[in-house]
Lab assay of single mutants.
Amino acid sequence: TTTLTYTDEEEARKAAEELKRRGITFTYTKRGGTWEIRIK
């Protein structure tokens, strides 16, 4: 499992869109002031 952490929502959203485009499965979690993208 790879976890990407972002403090900028815009960056996190761009990363999530890129992963979706590649067909990669991930979970997206907001934790306080950070956003976590966990790639399975």
Rank of each mutant, 00 (worst) to 15 (best):
K30E: 12
T25P: 14
K40Y: 15
T7E: 09
D8L: 08
K30Y: 14
T5E: 05
K40L: 15
I37P: 00
L19S: 01
T5G: 02
T2I: 15
L4A: 03
F26V: 02
I37D: 00
A16R: 05
L19M: 04
E9Y: 08
K20W: 11
A12P: 00
E18Q: 08
T29N: 08
K14M: 10
T1K: 08
K40I: 15
K30C: 08
G23R: 04
E11L: 08
T34I: 15
W35D: 00
E10T: 13
K30W: 08
F26E: 00
A12M: 07
K14E: 09
T29D: 05
A15E: 04
T2L: 15
D8E: 07
K20Q: 11
T1G: 13
E36P: 00
R22E: 05
A16T: 05
E18Y: 12
Y28N: 02
E10V: 12
A16S: 05
R31Q: 11
I39R: 02
T5A: 05
E11D: 09
A16C: 09
E10Y: 12
K14T: 09
A12Q: 01
A12Y: 11
R31L: 12
E9C: 05
Y6E: 00
T27P: 00
E11N: 06
L4G: 02
I37L: 04
I39H: 03
R13Q: 12
E11Q: 11
E10G: 13
E17L: 11
T34G: 07
R22K: 11
T7G: 06
E9K: 06
T7Q: 08
I37E: 00
T2W: 14
G33Q: 13
R31I: 15
F26G: 01
T3G: 02
R22Q: 13
I37Y: 01
D8M: 06
D8S: 14
E17V: 09
R13T: 08
I39Q: 02
E36L: 11
R22S: 06
E10A: 13
I39T: 03
E9L: 05
R13G: 04
T7L: 09
E9W: 08
Y6C: 02
D8N: 14
E17D: 11
T34M: 14
A12K: 01
A16H: 02
R21P: 00
L19Q: 01
E11H: 07
E17F: 11
R22D: 04
A16F: 08
R22V: 05
F26I: 02
R38F: 09
R21I: 08
E18D: 12
Y28K: 04
G23W: 02
F26N: 01
K30I: 08
F26R: 00
A16N: 02
Y6R: 01
A15V: 14
G32T: 04
G33C: 08
I24W: 05
I39V: 07
R13I: 14
T29W: 07
R13N: 10
A15Y: 09
Y28C: 10
T25D: 15
E11A: 11
A16V: 12
E18N: 08
F26L: 02
I37A: 00
E10R: 14
I24G: 02
R13P: 00
K30H: 11
K14S: 10
E17Q: 11
W35A: 01
R21G: 05
I24M: 05
R21D: 06
I24D: 02
K30T: 06
F26Q: 00
T2N: 08
